[in-house]
Write a protein that binds this DNA or RNA. Structure first.
Lengths: 258, 258
DNA sequence: AGATATTTGTTCGTATGTATT
DNA sequence: TAATACATACGAACAAATATC
């Protein structure tokens, strides 16, 4: 089952600019011919001939498709435009652009995480294998001990998020998995979170590690309900921590500025 | 609180192509100067001078930013590149491009909807006003009666999704609201869903309408738990319907082809 | 490894289209 | 309506990258 071709709107809206017309046209041919990643598009000079446009115009059209993650352009003999799948990184980056101005709060993110992380963990359970569990253990090892400096402390916070990223990777619900990993990335990128993570305050690592070890055990045992409840509790706990530290930060800021 | 500037990666990665360098540079100036939508960027000729690049190169850079939803370009006197916020439509379209090849199933979508729609309804409750409720009633009116033909049946299915879109609009959790509306859009765009919606089979409208009227009543009463449980049940019911009809479709397909 | 051919990437000059006044 | 200021489009020449021999 596939999402409908993004260019398949019924009333083919007027793209007054030649560049956009050509970009749409190329996109349509990709969709209609069901071209797969790696498949080759006509070369620049052929597109110029085909659409009776100038080099610059065609290049702008290709640039548009490139940014949309639909094609990739290579130089050299045998080069040209090739159909490409948008990378997850680009998808998250573009979505980040959209959310940039939207004032997303920590509470907003955790409202979603509390709902979704239990789901993704459960859906990942069935697909977890030995190497998956090993990856999780390796990540736990990063924050298995007290951090010596701010740099290591930050690394540990990142690793704690990576733990959940790995779990999400094993879900076969692409939508759910993407969403969870995006939320994790948001936590890494949010300016306020950075400040929180850098605070010297100990974040009760032990408790987090305990949750995660229990989680691994429950996943291995295939105990759905336990997995769900562990993650739920873990998320509630993590949110409280973040919000508390955030409040502390604001307090300090007020104290200092007064 | 803001999502970190998307271009704020620490190791400013090498953008070997001049076009990409310039696009990154412009993006950085937008972010660093905290430019707001409507603010003006240097004109083409100034950018050409500033980056010592040709017209074509600068234009490709601007095209890239335009596709990313960061700028908008206007011709004519006083024209040029202006800072812009990515529209929700573009964000969804780009995300759709990413998901295009990912084999998203109806079950995947409803796994998320079952978790998120109750949340978004509850978070929308506080912000609902008279005009909001009126919008909901107007939508219900669209499928208040038996459809006369396939076209109207289709309109009704779309309106049923619109109902939830309006609810989501009233949530102040931008992340949650966007996610719910995206899932609704996905249901509108999925090829399989289109087939399902077009089936002459009655979809038990009455039951759906009953849910939604109860929901409005509960929202007006401010009864969080009731709102939550109504939506939960409604989602479970809707999913079952969709999956049943999907199975029916596949069955018919098998019958016909045998 | 180096030379070469192929294809994209960049530049410049010019002409056309479009919105403002 | 006309003049102006800007983006949009064209075409030819040259530079850079890269696969092939």
């Amino acid at each position: 089952m596939r999402v409908s071709a993004p260019g398949t709107k019924k009333p083919a809206r007027k793209a007054r600019k030649r560049t956009d017309e050509i970009a749409e046209a190329i996109k349509r041919t990709i969709m209609e011919h069901g071209l797969e990643p790696g498949d080759r598009l006509p070369q620049e000079k052929d597109l110029i001939a085909q659409y009776a446009a100038s080099k610059g115009t065609v290049r702008e059209a290709l640039k548009s498709l490139e940014v949309q993650g639909l094609v990739r352009i290579r130089t050299g003999p045998g080069g040209g435009a090739f159909v490409e799948r948008m990378s997850e990184g680009r998808a998250m980056s573009l979505l980040g652009n959209y959310l940039f101005a939207k004032d997303v709060t920590i509470a907003d993110i955790y409202e979603l995480r509390k709902a979704l992380e239990p789901l993704v963990a459960v859906s990942a359970m069935d697909n977890m294998d030995e190497s998956g569990f090993r990856r999780l253990e390796d990540i736990i090892a990063v924050y298995d001990h007290e951090a010596r400096d701010a740099g290591e402390r930050w690394q540990q916070r990142m690793a704690e998020l990576d733990f959940h990223t790995v779990v999400a990777e094993y879900s076969d619900n692409a939508l759910l998995s993407f969403q969870c990993r995006f939320l994790q990335r948001l936590l890494k990128d949010l300016a306020v979170c950075r400040d929180i993570y850098l605070q010297p305050q100990p974040i009760l690592r032990q408790r987090g590690i305990a949750y995660q070890r229990e989680l691994i055990k429950a996943m291995k045992a295939g105990d759905v309900e336990v997995v769900r409840s562990i993650i739920s509790e873990h998320m509630i706990h993590a949110e409280q921590q973040m919000l508390t530290l955030e409040a502390t930060l604001e307090h300090r800021f007020i104290d200092e500025s007064s």
